[in-house]
Simulated scan of single mutants.
Amino acid sequence: MTLSKMERASLEMQLPGDRRKEFVISIDTAHVRSADPNSGRNFELVVARCGHGGRGDVSGRYFATSSSDQTAIRDRTLHALRQEGYRGFGDVTVISDGAEILKRLPRAMPKPTAHIIDCSTSP
């Protein structure tokens, strides 16, 4: 069966919700305390997963950094997104808790970027 030119064009059309254009960043922080209670060597760790949208997708790029510098976090996030195919367009969603260093990340990312605050707590 041969498809007409118009039928082929409609099959190639990009539809809303195209997984290749949806990117999700799940990002969280952890406060790491020194094993020595007399040591002042505590730090905050940022851990993230960047990947495509879609339920049950386990692929993606992970990164961790001890830098709390907003520019460094943004740059690491964009690098991981680019490795997943992000080319400066598409929908980006940031999922994070209300940690202060993560609140500004969605505003630092390319537009459009949505921010979902995960308020769930584990028992």
Rank of each mutant, 00 (worst) to 15 (best):
M1E: 08
T2G: 09
T2H: 06
S4Y: 06
S4D: 10
K5R: 12
M6S: 14
R8I: 15
R8L: 15
A9R: 15
S10K: 14
E12G: 05
M13N: 08
M13Y: 08
Q14I: 11
Q14S: 12
Q14C: 09
Q14V: 07
L15R: 07
L15W: 07
L15P: 02
P16T: 00
G17W: 05
D18R: 03
D18P: 01
R19N: 00
R19M: 06
R20I: 00
K21N: 07
E22D: 10
V24L: 12
S26R: 00
I27Y: 09
T29H: 10
T29L: 11
A30G: 14
H31F: 15
H31S: 09
H31G: 03
H31Y: 14
V32W: 07
V32R: 14
R33Y: 10
R33L: 09
S34K: 05
S34R: 04
A35C: 04
A35E: 02
A35D: 06
S39R: 01
G40K: 09
N42M: 09
N42Y: 08
F43Q: 03
E44P: 03
L45M: 11
V46T: 08
V46K: 04
A48K: 01
G51Y: 08
H52M: 04
H52E: 07
G54H: 03
R55F: 15
G56K: 10
V58R: 15
V58I: 13
S59D: 10
G60L: 04
G60C: 01
G60Q: 03
R61A: 11
Y62L: 11
F63A: 04
A64I: 00
A64F: 11
T65I: 02
S66M: 08
D69W: 00
Q70V: 13
A72M: 05
I73F: 11
I73D: 02
I73K: 01
R74V: 00
R74G: 06
R74C: 12
D75R: 10
R76E: 15
T77L: 08
L78P: 02
L78W: 06
H79A: 15
A80C: 11
A80G: 04
A80S: 07
L81T: 00
L81A: 05
R82L: 05
Q83W: 08
Q83A: 11
E84V: 05
Y86T: 08
R87K: 12
G90M: 05
G90N: 02
D91S: 09
V92Q: 04
V92M: 09
V92S: 02
T93D: 02
T93R: 05
V94R: 03
V94L: 06
S96R: 06
G98D: 15
G98S: 12
E100P: 05
E100D: 15
I101S: 02
I101N: 00
K103V: 06
K103L: 13
R104D: 14
R104H: 12
L105G: 02
L105T: 02
L105F: 03
A108P: 02
A108E: 13
M109R: 06
M109F: 07
P110A: 03
P110H: 02
K111C: 07
K111S: 14
K111N: 10
P112M: 01
P112F: 05
T113L: 04
I117L: 15
D118C: 12
C119S: 11
C119K: 10
S120P: 05
S120F: 13
S120V: 00
T121H: 15
S122P: 11
P123T: 01
